[in-house]
């Protein structure tokens, strides 16, 4: 089945829900079927925030998946929670800036990316989420990375338009990081 399930998980405030929405917009605009569901537990600021995005060529049945194909883990609890659950052959994109550990499983591919550091380098730590989904789409080629930029351009609220260039840069830097890691491995 041509269905890709992606979980984006982190602390509240790390932009996981918005990153998931942007991915959903990009998928929709690209002509894919898509669903987005947040965790909506009684969480407080600083608690966990995660969402699951399913992208498919066919009508989507279940909007939830036990074993996601890819997980963006923005913090340590997310790594611990999802390492056992990622589907064999799947991916984990780990925010190395906040996660000082390696995963043990060998049947999934991890990418350790210093998301916060790259975002800080670009001048705004709040765009870590964009670095991470840029990396995700470079790794899991469910949509072209450029679709994220198009979706951001189409759906960003007018008052945030000024942040487009830095967001684009963050997406590109995430993608470039993955390209380089993959090139080294070859």
């Amino acid at each position: 089945m041509t269905e890709t399930s992606i979980i984006i998980s982190g602390f509240g405030g790390q932009g996981t829900l918005f990153a998931g929405q942007l991915l959903a917009y990009a998928a929709m605009d690209y002509g894919k079927e898509v669903t987005w569901i947040p965790s909506y537990g009684p969480e407080m600021r600083g608690g966990t925030a995660r969402c699951i995005v399913i992208i498919s060529d066919e009508k989507i049945g279940s909007p939830v998946a036990r074993n996601p194909f890819a997980v963006i883990a923005m913090n340590v609890p997310s790594v611990n929670m999802y390492e056992p659950l990622v589907a064999p052959g799947g991916y984990m994109i780990i925010n190395e800036s906040l996660v000082d550990q390696k995963i043990e499983r060998t049947d999934i591919q991890p990418i350790y990316i210093p998301g916060n550091d790259i975002a800080k380098e670009l001048g705004n730590i709040r765009i870590t989420n964009m670095v991470m989904i840029g990396a995700l789409l470079e790794l899991v080629q469910v949509l072209p990375v450029d679709e994220l930029k198009k979706a951001l351009d189409s759906h960003i609220p007018e008052r945030h338009r000024g942040t487009l260039p830095i967001n684009f840069e963050a997406i590109e830097r995430g993608a470039k990081f993955v390209q380089e890691v993959l090139a080294e491995k070859v």
Partner: peptide, 10 residues
């Protein structure tokens, strides 16, 4: 159910 209330879909 809460899933449908909270989810986003085209």
């Amino acid at each position: 159910d809460g899933n449908l209330g909270q989810m986003m879909e085209p």
